[in-house]
Design a protein around this nucleic acid. Sequence first.
DNA 1: GATTCTCCATACGCTTACGTATGCTTTATA
DNA 2: TATAAAGCATACGTAAGCGTATGGAGAATC
Lengths: 186, 186
Amino acid sequence: MAKNRLSPEDWLSAGFRALSTDGPNALKAEPLARRLGTTKGSFYWHFEDVPTFQAAMLQLWEDRAYVAVVEDLNKEPNPIKRLRALASAAAESAPEEFGGKGAEPSIRAWARESQTVAKAVKRIDDLRMSYVRDLLTEIGLTNSELTRLLYGAFIGMQELSTRDDESNSDAMGTLVDLILALYEDA
Amino acid sequence: MAKNRLSPEDWLSAGFRALSTDGPNALKAEPLARRLGTTKGSFYWHFEDVPTFQAAMLQLWEDRAYVAVVEDLNKEPNPIKRLRALASAAAESAPEEFGGKGAEPSIRAWARESQTVAKAVKRIDDLRMSYVRDLLTEIGLTNSELTRLLYGAFIGMQELSTRDDESNSDAMGTLVDLILALYEDA
DNA sequence: GATTCTCCATACGCTTACGTATGCTTTATA
DNA sequence: TATAAAGCATACGTAAGCGTATGGAGAATC
């Protein structure tokens, strides 16, 4: 354990881990300092105050939340394969420095006690849902319930897999199969 | 505003409303007292301490959480109709004194910062999932992913509808249609 | 109508977190 | 290597919540 100096990123990363394990209540200066083996002197050097720190975390999440899910997908020209890839993306968890597996459910939990967070989550959800809607339309499925079903299932899977380690991609894959079967018949 | 005396139930109900609107952070003696226009003297009269109060809330939720969803269902002998009824139950929200629409997502958010709550939620999820599994088996569908898919979608819908007022029963109904189409073919 | 019991208000000491201020180390720069 | 700057520790005063204890107001009972 050298006398490491900390960067703002170290604090933010610790914030995400704390959020995942202990909930939004842990996003405070002194608890985080303990977690990092330092004191709040460091915290207040890097950040104005606690709200500023939390805003930085949120910004970081929001910047990744849409792009990380969709970016790689668009390399695939075939919309049906893209839908399958999207479904299996439900199984992927965030990198460890963003809180790992339970990262997004943690943010949703956080959103329940902060209007600011809630608004950011809504922005992301809207973006993703319209992506799904467009994708389904491209395939030829215009039933508007399908978007909500797919995205809702995605959210629910994330929630379930914070406890167990079941494969979400199997269940989501099943859903895509069911939906595409509908498409085959049409 | 008469000089109302409060019952333990009044406190518990206020607890659920506070949990829904302000998150688990609001489950404390003095904030709740303010909300009820009284002081914590009343709180500590009715409850040993804050953990005891929270345990009582959790117990109350757990007692209802399985029964409330499943009980009415079992009057219906036809398993396919029972499945449909279950799906549309996703749209129903808890009574106002239990926190209304966002009640269950709030409990899930709470579970992220309390092991005790997390365990209770797991117990309920396990119960419900095995109910769904049995139901699907009765219909003749043994694909084990379907249970997870259905229940995950159910959870996700609850999460989504804390913001908007879209009908979950439509999306869940669509899912049941898709699943039963599979059954027709078999 | 006096007494008892239920329920609530208030005041206390304790803890934890806040944000500020001030100084002590390191690391960088001249 | 002297000096400055960056990064952290520590010590305030303030605020909010905890749980206790004690007293007072209302309701119930006799």
